[in-house]
Amino acid sequence: MHPAFSVLIFTVASGAGYGLLALLIMGHLMGMTQLQDNTVVLTAGSLSLALITGGLLTSTLHLANPKNAWRAFSRFKTSWLSREAVFAILVYPFALTYLLSSWASEELNLLTQLAGILTLILSMMTLFCTSMIYASLKTIRQWNTSLTPLNYLVLGLMSGSLLLVTVQGLVQGSAAQSLQSLALLLVVLGASVKLIYLFWIGKPAGSTINTATGFTQAKVRLLDAGHTADTFLTNEFGYEAGADKLLRLRAAMLVLAFVVPFILMTLTSTVMMLIAALLALAGLLVERWLFFAEARHVVRLFHGDQAT
């Protein structure tokens, strides 16, 4: 699949945003001491909304006919993209209420709690819907797996946790041990999920040029695609990166998104944590790029690919 930059930015930013928001609210409502600080809540909360909003806006760049974007809410019944849109918008009133109410009073009141819980749920729902846009596509074996939502949720939370501990550390001078441990845990979890995913997509499976053409008894080769220049289909689905480039990027992704942040996270310096969070986001951009670049749509079979 062609990695559209706007979509990469969107999924990474909104993933981090929702992850941050969810973890913030969870810690806040569960009474975690360091998170009872108004400044931390408002800073982290605003950051998450900025990430989410920025992400959503970027995502509309991907639309070829954005004047109809408002219609995206209408097919909630069947479309994960529609659901994502609905949830993404629904988050706002609750998230704002939660933040306003937190700002208004240091104390956890019912409004904050209710708004917080709903924001938390909606955030996770949004992230889940986003992931299901990909996971529900039977046309892309590498996406059509429960590992996809798992991946999105875990990586969203992981990047959120890195941001959370960084914000908390920066605001309060030193990072909370518990948040630091949580971040470390999520980094390990994220890495594990990603490794499992990479292993899983390595196994050949799914449709082949034989099932695509209906000639299942012998080798099938493309002689002529019916067009000599690229088309929408080859641009969108025919994206091809060299095997060594993919390998290098996988390594870079693992190092940037997991290994280095993990090491930096073990240090106590909040500056290091900031660097860890930024590196992880960069790493996740690579991860998202790979998520697209390594996804092989079955349409490719018609253009000569032997298998997906």
């Binding site: 070829a64 006919n65 993209l81 596509l137 088309t231 289909l233």
Partner: peptide, 22 residues
Amino acid sequence: DKCMGCNLCSWACPYGARELDP
């Protein structure tokens, strides 16, 4: 009149039947 050009339907189509108008 309603399409927003998100390409998602083309992703969902296994047969390459959908093309975005440039």
